[in-house]
Design a protein around this nucleic acid. Structure first.
Length: 464
RNA sequence: GCCCCUAUCGUCUAGCGGCUAGGACAGCGGCUUCUCAAGCCGUUAACCGGGGUUCGAUUCCCCGUGGGGGCACCA
C-alpha cells in the first residue's frame, strides 16, 4: 500500500472555525498515526472573498495547536516546501489548463453561456426543478458509488452537468479540488460531512480524468450546543473561532484533546490523553457517524485539568503572556519574584488563565473592591471586630517566616480565647482581599508581609 | 420539494443479539477543609416510535418521526 498522503485545504475567506480546526486535526492525526504526509493547500480561488490576513490566521492557528504540515506554504508566509507545489490554488492556473484540456480531449467538457461545463454521460431529458424553479436537463446514468471509510457504501445519483470554469475564467471548487488531489497524490480525503453530497461530482470528475478516486472519509459535523440553538456551528456563534481560545489563553493541548474527542472515541474510557497517545490510538474506522454538539463546559474542564498539571515554569510563562496583554500588566509583573510567588499560589486554584487578573488583583493594589455580600455575611456572624482587634494586637510579634509559623501564631491566639482558626480567617481574608475566595490566609499574610497586612487590617477596622 | 447522512442519559460517548445499559462533562448530595476552588465518595438521568427477523433485540432489516447536510458561474 502506498504511503498515506492527506491534506487540509482551507480557503482563506473568514476566521478559522473550530470545525475547520477539527477537520485539520483528524487529517493531521491520521498522517501522524500512519507515518504519512500532511499537506496544507490553500484554496484561494474565490478572489472576491479571499484575504491575506486570513492566510496568516490559518498558519498561526494550526501552529498554535501543534499541527505541523509537511508540505505547503511556510508558516512565516515566505515560500513553501514540498514536491507538488505550488500549494496555493491561485498560483496553479497552468495545472488547471492542462487538466481542462484533458477533459476536452476526452469529450467531457463543453462551453455554454461563457462558462465551461462538465458533461455527464447518458441519455438526456428535461424536468422542472421545484427548488430552482426552472427547467433543468438531466442525464440517465448509473448511481455513483462511494466507499466511505467512515460511513460505508453510499450511493448517490449525479445526473446533471455542472460548471467547472466560470465565465470570468476562474475554475470552481469541485474541479480544482479534484485536480489538486490527483496532482498532489492525495490518498485519503478526510473532510466534513457537508461535502458528502459533493463527492458524487468529484467521483465523476475522477472518472473523467481516468483516475481511480482516493479513499474518502466524511467526518461528522460540529453542531451548536443546545443553549446556542439549532444547526451547524457557524462563525457567529460564541466559541466558534480558534483565535478566541488563543486570545483567552486556553492551553492548545486541552483544545486539541477536546476536539479529538468530538466524533472520535479511543476506547477504554480514555479521555484526557497526551497527544502522542491520541496519535497512536487514532484511526478512521473509530470515527463516529453522527454529528456532535459542542460543549464549552467540557472544554473548560479539560482546560482546567491541563492547567493544574502544568509545571510551575510553564504556568508562569502562561501567566506572563496573559498579564502582558492586560492594561496594568507591566506594573503587576514589575517585581519578578513577587509575581512568581503569587502565580504559584494561584495555579492550583483557578480554572483558566483568564481568571488570573481578578483572582490576584489585591496582591498588586490597595484599591481592591470589597464584596458587599461577603462582607454582610462575614460581619454578621460572631464578633469579627473583636477578632480583628486581637489579630492586630498580635501581628507586631508574629513570626512571618513561613505559613506554618503564621498558622501556629493564629492558632495559639485562638486557643487562648477558646476559639478556632476559622474565627479569624474569614474576617482577615475580607480585610486583606475583599472577598471570600483565594489562597490560604497564611500565604496571604506571608506574601503581603507584616506591614501591609497590618495596614490593611487597620484600614478595614476603621470603616467596618 | 428532491437527494444524502444520522438517531443510547441535558451534552460527549461505550455497547458491535442475551449487560444490574458503562465512562466523562454538567446537575444534585455528602466528605475533606482556614475561605473559595480542586480532590474524594455517592446520586439523578438514556436505548425516538411502529413493524419485521430471531428462542431472544439498544444491537440486524423496513417504514415513520426527529436531527444534520446538500441541491450555485460559494468553498
Amino acid at each position: 500500500m502506498s504511503p498515506v498522503r492527506v491534506r487540509f485545504a482551507p480557503s482563506p475567506t473568514g476566521f478559522f472555525h473550530i470545525g475547520s480546526a477539527r477537520t485539520a486535526l483528524f487529517n493531521w492525526l491520521y498522517a501522524r498515526h500512519t507515518g504519512g504526509t500532511f499537506i496544507l493547500r490553500i484554496e484561494d480561488t474565490d478572489q472576491a472573498r479571499d484575504s491575506e490576513k486570513f492566510l496568516r490566521l490559518i498558519y498561526d492557528s494550526l501552529t498554535w495547536m501543534g499541527m505541523d504540515w509537511d508540505e505547503g506554504p511556510n508558516a512565516n508566509g515566505v515560500g513553501e516546501r514540498g514536491d507538488y507545489g505550488p500549494y496555493r490554488q491561485s498560483q496553479r492556473a497552468e495545472v488547471y489548463q492542462r487538466y481542462l484540456a484533458r477533459l476536452r480531449n476526452a469529450g467531457r467538457a463543453y462551453e455554454k453561456d461563457g462558462a465551461i461545463w462538465f458533461k455527464q454521460l447518458g441519455d438526456r431529458y428535461t424536468v422542472f426543478d421545484d427548488h430552482r424553479k426552472k427547467e433543468v436537463e438531466k442525464v440517465k446514468s448509473d448511481l455513483v458509488v462511494i466507499e466511505d471509510q467512515i460511513r460505508g457504501r453510499v450511493e448517490r445519483a449525479e445526473d446533471e452537468d455542472f460548471v467547472i470554469v466560470r465565465s470570468d475564467g476562474n475554475p470552481v471548487f469541485h474541479f480544482v479540488n479534484v485536480v489538486d488531489d490527483i496532482e498532489m497524490k492525495v490518498t485519503h480525503i478526510i473532510r466534513g460531512e457537508d461535502h458528502l453530497s459533493n463527492t458524487s461530482k468529484h467521483v465523476r470528475l475522477y472518472e473523467g480524468f481516468g483516475v481511480t478516486p482516493p479513499a474518502f472519509a466524511h467526518i461528522p459535523l460540529i453542531l451548536k450546543s443546545p443553549e446556542m440553538g439549532q444547526g451547524k456551528m457557524s462563525k457567529r456563534d460564541q466559541g466558534a473561532l480558534v483565535e478566541e481560545y488563543q486570545r483567552r489563553h486556553f492551553l492548545p493541548e486541552a483544545l486539541v484533546n477536546y476536539l479529538a474527542l468530538l466524533g472520535w472515541n479511543p476506547g477504554e474510557d480514555r479521555e484526557k490523553m497526551p497527544i502522542a497517545e491520541i496519535v497512536r490510538r487514532f484511526d478512521l474506522p473509530a470515527v463516529n457517524q453522527s454529528n456532535a454538539k459542542f460543549d464549552s463546559k467540557k472544554l473548560a474542564h479539560m482546560n482546567m485539568v491541563y492547567l493544574l498539571e502544568q509545571p510551575a515554569d510553564r504556568f508562569l510563562a502562561l501567566a506572563k503572556d496573559y498579564f502582558a496583554q492586560q492594561p496594568n500588566g507591566a506594573s503587576v509583573m514589575a517585581d519578578e519574584s513577587y509575581f512568581a510567588e503569587i502565580m504559584s499560589l494561584a495555579q492550583p486554584k483557578i480554572k483558566s488563565v483568564e481568571e488570573l487578573g481578578a483572582y490576584t488583583n489585591y496582591f498588586f493594589t490597595e484599591e481592591f473592591p470589597i464584596d458587599d455580600k461577603v462582607k454582610a455575611k462575614v460581619m454578621g456572624k460572631g464578633e469579627p471586630k473583636a477578632r480583628l482587634a486581637e489579630l492586630m494586637a498580635t501581628l507586631p510579634a508574629m513570626d512571618f517566616a513561613s505559613d506554618a509559623s503564621i498558622e501556629a501564631a493564629i492558632k495559639s491566639l485562638a486557643d487562648g480565647k477558646a476559639l478556632g482558626f476559622g474565627d479569624y480567617q474569614g474576617v482577615a481574608r475580607l480585610a486583606l482581599t475583599g472577598t471570600n475566595a483565594g489562597p490560604s490566609i497564611t500565604s496571604i499574610f506571608r506574601v503581603l508581609g507584616r506591614d501591609r497586612t497590618l495596614a490593611r487590617l487597620q484600614r478595614f477596622a476603621a470603616v467596618a
